[in-house]
Design a protein around this nucleic acid. Structure first.
Ligand SMILES: [Zn+2]
Ligand SMILES: [Zn+2]
Ligand SMILES: [Zn+2]
Ligand SMILES: [Zn+2]
Lengths: 393, 393
DNA sequence: TAGCGTTCAAACTGTTCA
DNA sequence: TGAACAGTTTGAACGCTA
């Protein structure tokens, strides 16, 4: 195989044995481009599989090929790879037609048709193993996703009167209500229902794990919630500096930051518990657990927030609490992040996923490792095909 | 044939040789769409078979075709495949009528009418020859299919207490009962009724043939039952090695293996006797007999087992003995085999075949040769259309 | 026999992946 | 890049009824 490729450069003009692809007797069909064995008509010419694929690719990605021999190469089976320019020219000269390549739209239509056919004939039922995995994920999620936010402990949210956001929001009405609700509580930390959660630290010991009592593994080395929160706030700070707005916080007052920080902490804690509730996650090395959690945390949080996002009002409805984008602005988040993030929330929410599907998304996010080198920028696309909401920094 | 396809793009307007499909002299009718030889009027136009089929298909599946040439293509015999849009347009322009295509309901009515006619003229009764064949098969089967397992000689079945199977089985109840039954017998080999069968060898001489006394041919060269059993056990062993589980049997104890081996031997012996009872089988060369038996043995055994399979309980009821899938697991069979095998048993049993139909299935299996090259993997589909249960190894 | 529908292997698309 | 694969379209041959 290797020696064939050696001795045919430059493609000699002398070996112009004009192919007589007459079907002499039986079946010796010959590629009219390179002389290889042909497999039938492709784009209106008798060609081999190689020239067929080459022609399609060349036509789909219009690239200007350049011949090193002034375009006089004679294409053969062994040298066809050496000069794309002459190979393509030969393709066209023998009558290959780009019109017979299916158009972008036609291909897409064909694909969706095939998907539809598959759905019809192949029962959409899952194997028992698959069902079990889903059940496991869903159980862990159910135990750690506090829709009512009844265990949420927080400092009151302080909404500024002058909207900082340029987007109009219907937050004025709820602002008073929510602030008023805060005032009913004596302590500076509020909670919907009383819990034993200590406000200062949220260590990762399983002290609160309600799912499994005794079989807890060691989690003392998992990242502390405080660490993760600090990480994110640091990132915000860095970004601010880069944007040349680091005026030391003198002109901009992030009134909602304390509350949003508490909210973030609460979400992170629950997400860590979700991961801990997955046997397949606990089976990983502790360092891997940390890396996965760090890499996926932001995305998983957004996925969870999306489940509470109301597309009609643009408001996140977290139990008795409600948030609008303006609250994020007032916490110091920049348009550069919030713009694509909002697009993400509207897009994803409009798909109207079921809860199980959200859980699967979380799992995909969790188990998609992020390269250490890119941890700084968290995750860029996280495998969610066309739904990347993360700006390209 | 190849030359014709070369030069015809874009479909030229110049080649508009207006077809004169006058029946000049004899029969030179021409397709008004593409110019090919026409086979008559189809949907109100003189067309070829190709354009006839194309028109019907295009009308049945309302797909929007798109012409890459702004719809100016001129359709010819050689380029008609290259632009569906223009071909369909040409069809309609020459007067082809979709009204002449039978509607969905009309087609269905026609089909049932045909079925009815078939029933009338083709008597649903079988010819005497066919009846005779069936009778012959059934007789041979009846004499060799021991529903009561009264001649089954075996070592007691040792069921482990801890279920090895991950699937839940209702085997616990029967376990005790069946083991208890074994205890009533003194010898390590048990049998329901005493027979003269020697436990060590089951030679293929017709010493036990109750059907024909004297006209026995030589069968000493037929495969020994022991051979076949060994073959199958070897295959299981090989598979196990491939799956990297060949721990020398130290960790996995196949407690039921001795009994299952006896059961297999008994089944094989009866199936060989079934084949021997068929004159049409005996008429074959001895080597062919061996090949057919080897190739079909596993499948025929499963068919026989299926006749005793209880879909409700998932238990094979073999006379006084009962088996569940767990027994096979404990004999060393792997999920890779048992999974599709169980599917097969449930599927086939649910069809509720009559006994005669089971016998016909056995015969089909027996007389379907398996290529020597594939003997390793036994039979892959065995001619049972969509019921392949054999995993692709 | 004319003209419907049916069948199914060959032909020809795009896709995958080493 | 191209061999192998997967899926669809085509049309020659055939079955059936009026
Ligand atoms: Zn070629
Ligand atoms: Zn060149
Ligand atoms: Zn035609
Ligand atoms: Zn066209």
């Amino acid at each position: 195989m290797s020696k064939e490729n050696l001795s045919d450069w430059p493609p000699s003009q002398t070996s112009a044995e004009e192919e007589e692809e007459e079907e002499d007797d039986g079946e010796p069909k010959v590629c009219q481009v390179c002389g290889d064995r042909a497999t039938g008509y492709h784009f209106n010419a008798m060609t081999c599989e190689g020239c067929k694929g080459f022609f399609r690719r060349a036509m789909k990605h219009p690239t200007k090929f350049c011949c090193p021999q002034q375009g006089v190469c004679v294409i053969t089976k062994n040298n066809r790879r050496q000069c794309q320019a002459c190979r393509l020219h030969k393709c066209q000269s023998i009558g290959m037609l780009k019109e017979l390549i299916m158009s972008k739209e036609a291909v897409e239509k064909r694909r969706s048709q095939i998907r539809r056919n598959r759905m019809v004939e192949e029962p959409p039922v899952l194997s028992p193993q698959q069902e079990a995995v889903i059940q496991e994920l869903f159980n862990a999620h159910e135990k750690t996703f506090d829709v009512t936010f009844s265990h949420f402990q927080f400092r009151p949210i302080d909404r500024d009167l002058n909207p900082m956001s340029v987007w109009n929001q219907t937050a004025s009405g709820q602002s008073a209500k929510q602030t008023g609700r805060m005032d009913n509580l004596s302590s500076s930390y509020s909670t919907s229902t009383s819990t034993s959660l200590s406000s200062s630290s949220c260590s990762l010991e399983d002290e609160e794990d309600r799912s499994d009592g005794g079989k807890n593994t060691v989690f003392t080395t998992l990242p502390d919630v405080a660490d993760l929160t600090t990480d994110m706030e640091e990132k915000e700070e860095e970004k601010e500096k880069k944007e040349g707005r680091s005026d030391g916080g003198k002109n901009t007052v992030f009134t909602t930051l304390p509350h949003i920080a508490d909210l973030t902490t609460y979400m992170i804690q629950n997400i860590i518990n979700f991961a801990k509730g997955l046997p397949s996650f606990r089976a990983l090395a502790i360092d891997d657990q940390i890396s996965l959690l760090k890499g996926a945390m932001f995305e998983m949080m957004q996925i969870r927030f999306n489940m509470m996002f109301n597309v009609k009002t643009g408001i996140w409805e977290c139990g008795p609490l409600t948030y609008c984008m303006d609250d994020a602005v007032r916490a110091g988040f920049q348009r550069h992040l919030l713009d694509p993030l909002m697009r993400f929330h509207y897009t994803l929410r409009n798909i109207q996923l079921q809860e199980v599907e959200y859980v699967l998304m979380q799992a995909i996010s969790l188990f998609s490792p992020v390269c250490e080198l890119f941890e700084d920028r968290l995750k860029c696309s996280a495998g969610f095909g066309g739904m990347e909401f993360w700006p390209a920094w």
